[in-house]
Design a protein around this nucleic acid. Structure first.
Length: 759
DNA sequence: ATAGGGTTAG
C-alpha cells in the first residue's frame, strides 16, 4: 500500500467514524440501535472504543444490560467511559451486587475510577451493608486522592451509617471541608437508629457550629431513628422540640411521631397531635390516618379509633388494616372479623397485612380453626403469605395440637424460603413443642441460621413444657455462651423446668443469679416458680416464708402454686391459708375450690369437702362441672372406701359417664375442661377424668415414671387444652397415634392412660 | 453523577 492509498483509507475511515457517531446519537429506538450495531460489525468497527462506548450507553438506556455488558467485555481497550453507563444505571436501579462486579472489573483492567464512578460503588456497599468492601473502596479512594471529593465524602458517610459504623462515618464527616445537611442528617439519624441518644443529640446540637440549618428531613430522620431503636420518649421529645423551635412539622413528622405515642400509650399527646392534624389540614393523608387509628387502638380508645376510620374520605387499605388490628388488640375479635368479611366482599384487594392481621387476631384469641381457614382463603385469593403470616399461623396449629397443619405450614415455609427468618424458626419450634414433638422442635432450632432472643426462649420453654429440665438448662447455658443475654422469659422457663424436674438447689441458684449476675429483678411469675419448686420438694414452710417476705405483692399464681403444693403433700394448715387468699383474689375460679376440697379429702375431712362445695354454690359456681366433680368425688370415695375396688368399677364408670354427658350438655368450654366420651366399658380400669391442668399433671407423672403401667382403651376421644395434649402425646411416646377426622381437629388417639391415682 | 424522612401484620 502506498502513502496515497493509505491516506485515502484513513480519510474514508475517519469520515465513516464520525458519520457512525452521528448516526448512533440520532438513534431513537432499540431496533435502530441494533441496525446501526450490525452495520458497525459489518464494516469492522466493533473494536473502536469510542463507537462501542456510545453503543454501550444506548443499550444501557434501553435496559439491555446483557447486551451492553457483552460489548463492554469484548472491547480490547475499554476506558472509564465504557464502564460508566452500566455502573451508573445499575447503581440507580439498586442492583448493588452488579455494580460491584462491574467496579471490580474496572479495577482489574487497570482503569482509574473517577469521582463520578466511585460514589456508585460506595452506594452499592451501603445498599449491601458491605462494611469490609466499603472500607476497601474507601482505602482505594484515599490512595488515589479521590476521597477528597465532597461527593465521595458524602457517599462514604452514608455508606458507613448504613453499615452501622458510626465511628467511621463521623471521622469522614469531621474531615469534610463543607459539611452538608444531607450527610449530617444521615449521621444524626444513624445514631438515633442505634439508640445512641447521647451521640445523636451531641451531633445534632453541633448544627449551629457547623453552619448547618436542620430541615424537616433532618428532624424527621431523628424522630424515625429513635422510633426504630425503641427510644419512644426521645422521639416524642424531638417532635416537641421541633415545634417549639419554630420548625414546621410536616405530614412525615406526624406519621413518624404517632407510632412513638402509641407505644408510650400517651393518649394526651395523641389527642394533641390529632388536633394539630386537623388544624394543619393533614386529615386526608392516608399514612397519618393509619397511624392515628393505630394510636387510638393502642391507647384503648376504640370509639375514637372507629371515628377516625369512618371520618376518612376514601377507604384506604392501610387504615382498614390498622382498624382490624386495633379492634382485635382490644378484644373485639368478632367485630374485626365482621369488618374483614365485609371488606373482603366489597374490595377484592386485601393485601398480605390484611390477611395476616386477621390470622393473627384469630390465633391470639382462641379462634384457631378460623385462623387456619382464613389462611386457606388467603391462598385462594392468591395473596402470597410472607414470614409474618407464617409466624402468626403457626401458634394456631400449636394451640390445638394440629400437627398435620403445622407440618404443612412447615413445608410451605420451606418451599417459599421463609425458614431463615428468626420469627418463623421460633414459631416452628414452639409449634412442634406444643404438639408434643420436642425432638422436631430441636431439629428446627439447630438449623436456624440466625437466632434472636425469641428463638432461644422458644426452645427453652419447649423443653420446660416437656419436663426436660436438663435440656432446658443446656440450651439456657448455650444461649449465654453464644452471647445472647437472658431475659425474664428465659428465667421463667428455666425455673419452671427445674421445678418440674425437682431440681430444687439448681433452681434456687438460677433464681439467685437473676439479680446478682444478670441484673434482672425477679417478677411475680418467678416467685410463683420458686414457690412451686420449693413446694414440690416438700419445703412448704420455706415456700410460705418466701411469699411472706417477697418484695412485690404475691398474685393468684403465687398462692396457687402454694395451694397445689399443699395438695401434693396433703398439708392442710398452709393449704387453707393459700386457699383463703385465693378466694379473695379470684372468688370465681373453680380450680381453687377443687384443690382445697382435695386436700380435705386426702385428710379424710369429708364434711369440709361438702362445705367447700357449698362455698362454690354460694359464689355462683353451682353449674360449674367442678362442683359436680367434688360431689362425685365424695361418692367415689365412699364407693372406694370398701375393701375391694373392683366390684365398684362399673358404678364408678356409670357416674363418670353421666357426669361427662352433663358437662357436654351444659356446654362446658373444651378449652379448659377435659371430657371423656365413648368410653368403652372395660373391667378393672380406672379412668382419669377431670380438669385439664390436673390431668396434665398426672400424665406428666406418668411421663417421668416410665414404669407406670399404661393400659389402653380404644376409641377414646379427648378434647382438652394444649397442656393435656402435650403430656398425653409424650406419655404415649413410641406408640402409634391416629388422627382421624383431621378436618375438625378432634384427635382420636388409640390409647389412654390409667393409673392408680385419680383426683 | 451522589446522598437524608412516613402508616398498618410477628
Amino acid at each position: 500500500m502506498n502513502a496515497r492509498q493509505a491516506q485515502t483509507l484513513h480519510v474514508f475511515n475517519s469520515l465513516n467514524h464520525n458519520t457512525i457517531l452521528t448516526l448512533i446519537t440520532k438513534s431513537t429506538s432499540l431496533s435502530q440501535t441494533q441496525q446501526i450495531h450490525s452495520y458497525i460489525i459489518k464494516i469492522g468497527h466493533s473494536n473502536d472504543t469510542h463507537i462501542t462506548n456510545k453503543l454501550i450507553s444506548l443499550y444501557t438506556n434501553y435496559h439491555h444490560f446483557a447486551y451492553a455488558q457483552s460489548l463492554l467485555y469484548s472491547l480490547p481497550n475499554p476506558n472509564i467511559f465504557s464502564f460508566k453507563p452500566l455502573i451508573h444505571s445499575s447503581s440507580k436501579l439498586n442492583l448493588f451486587n452488579y455494580t460491584l462486579v462491574l467496579f471490580s472489573r474496572l479495577l482489574s483492567v487497570s482503569i482509574l475510577p473517577d469521582v463520578h464512578v466511585l460514589p456508585s460503588a460506595i452506594k452499592a456497599c451501603a445498599g449491601l451493608s458491605a462494611f469490609k468492601v466499603g472500607k476497601q473502596v474507601h482505602g482505594y479512594g484515599l490512595t488515589t486522592g479521590l476521597a477528597l471529593d465532597s461527593f465521595v465524602e458524602a457517599s462514604l458517610v452514608h455508606m458507613y451509617v448504613k453499615c452501622d459504623q458510626l465511628g467511621c462515618a463521623r471521622k469522614v464527616f469531621g474531615k469534610m471541608l463543607e459539611p452538608d445537611v444531607v450527610s449530617w442528617s444521615a449521621l444524626v439519624s444513624g445514631y438515633a437508629k442505634l439508640g445512641d441518644v447521647g451521640n445523636a443529640k451531641m451531633v445534632f446540637d453541633q448544627a449551629g457550629k457547623l453552619g448547618i440549618d436542620p430541615n424537616s428531613v433532618s428532624w424527621n430522620g431523628l424522630i424515625t431513628g429513635f422510633n426504630q431503636s425503641g427510644c419512644y420518649s426521645e422521639a416524642v421529645l424531638m417532635f416537641r422540640r421541633m415545634n417549639s423551635e419554630g420548625y414546621r412539622s410536616d405530614g412525615t413528622s406526624i406519621s413518624s411521631v404517632l407510632p412513638a405515642i402509641s407505644d408510650l400509650e400517651d393518649i394526651k399527646m395523641g389527642v394533641q397531635v390529632h388536633t394539630h392534624v386537623i388544624k394543619m389540614g393533614f386529615e386526608s393523608d392516608n399514612c397519618i390516618i393509619s397511624a392515628l387509628i393505630d394510636m387510638y387502638g393502642k391507647c384503648r380508645c376504640t370509639p375514637e379509633m372507629s371515628r377516625v376510620f369512618e371520618g376518612a374520605e376514601e377507604m384506604d387499605l392501610g387504615a382498614f388494616n390498622a382498624l382490624v388490628a386495633g379492634l382485635s388488640r382490644n378484644g373485639l375479635v368478632d367485630e374485626a372479623f365482621k369488618l374483614f368479611k365485609k371488606f373482603k366482599c366489597k374490595v377484592k384487594e386485601l393485601n398480605v397485612v390484611s390477611w395476616t392481621s386477621m390470622i393473627s387476631s384469630c390465633s391470639q384469641h382462641g379462634k384457631d380453626l378460623e385462623a387456619l381457614e382464613i389462611f386457606r382463603e388467603m391462598q385462594l385469593a392468591r395473596v402470597r403469605p410472607n414470614s409474618v403470616t407464617i409466624s402468626c399461623l403457626l401458634p394456631a396449629c400449636g394451640n390445638i395440637a394440629a400437627l398435620v397443619h403445622g407440618k404443612a405450614t412447615h413445608c410451605f415455609s420451606l418451599r417459599n424460603c421463609l425458614l431463615d427468618d428468626a420469627y418463623v424458626g421460633s414459631a416452628l419450634t414452639d409449634m412442634y413443642a406444643n404438639c408434643g414433638r420436642i425432638q422436631l422442635a430441636r431439629v428446627i432450632f439447630d438449623r436456624m441460621p440466625v437466632r434472636n432472643l425469641v428463638c432461644w426462649n422458644a426452645m427453652i420453654s419447649g423443653y420446660a413444657m416437656h419436663g426436660k429440665a436438663n435440656e432446658a438448662i443446656e440450651i439456657f447455658n448455650l444461649m449465654q455462651r453464644s452471647g445472647q443475654k437472658a431475659d425474664f422469659i428465659s428465667f421463667t422457663s428455666v425455673l419452671s423446668a427445674c421445678s418440674q424436674a425437682g431440681l430444687t438447689e439448681q433452681g434456687q441458684q438460677y433464681f439467685d443469679s437473676m439479680s446478682k449476675v444478670h441484673g434482672l429483678e425477679a417478677r411475680v411469675e418467678h416467685y410463683a416458680c420458686m414457690v412451686s419448686l420449693l413446694g414440690r420438694a416438700g419445703k412448704l414452710k420455706e415456700a410460705y416464708n418466701m411469699i411472706s417476705t417477697m418484695p412485690i405483692e404475691p398474685d393468684a399464681c403465687v398462692w396457687g402454686a402454694l395451694l397445689s403444693s399443699c395438695r401434693t403433700h396433703r398439708n392442710l394448715s398452709l393449704g387453707e391459708i393459700a386457699a383463703n387468699k385465693l378466694f379473695e383474689l379470684e372468688p370465681k375460679n373453680p380450680g381453687n375450690y377443687i384443690l382445697l376440697s382435695n386436700i380435705y379429702a386426702s385428710n379424710n375431712r369429708w364434711n369440709e369437702v361438702d362445705r367447700v362445695r357449698d362455698m362454690m354454690k354460694h359464689v355462683g359456681l353451682s353449674k360449674n362441672p367442678g362442683c359436680s366433680w367434688i360431689e362425685i368425688k365424695n361418692k367415689v370415695h365412699m364407693l372406694l372406701a370398701g375393701d375391694d375396688l373392683h366390684p365398684q368399677m362399673p358404678q364408678i364408670m356409670e357416674k363418670l359417664r353421666k357426669l361427662s354427658m352433663d358437662m357436654k350438655n351444659s356446654g362446658v368450654s373444651h378449652d379448659t375442661e377435659f371430657v371423656l366420651h365413648d368410653v368403652e366399658e372395660q373391667d378393672k380400669e380406672l379412668i382419669l377424668c377431670g380438669h385439664s391442668e390436673k390431668l396434665a399433671v398426672v400424665l406428666g407423672i406418668l411421663n417421668t415414671n416410665p414404669g407406670t403401667p399404661l393400659r389402653v382403651i380404644k376409641n377414646l376421644r379427648i378434647c382438652g387444652d394444649c397442656h393435656v395434649f402435650i403430656k398425653f402425646i409424650s406419655s404415649l411416646e413410641g406408640r402409634e397415634i391416629y388422627v382421624r377426622d383431621a378436618n375438625r381437629f378432634h384427635h382420636f388417639y388409640e390409647g389412654v392412660c390409667s393409673c392408680g391415682d385419680y383426683w
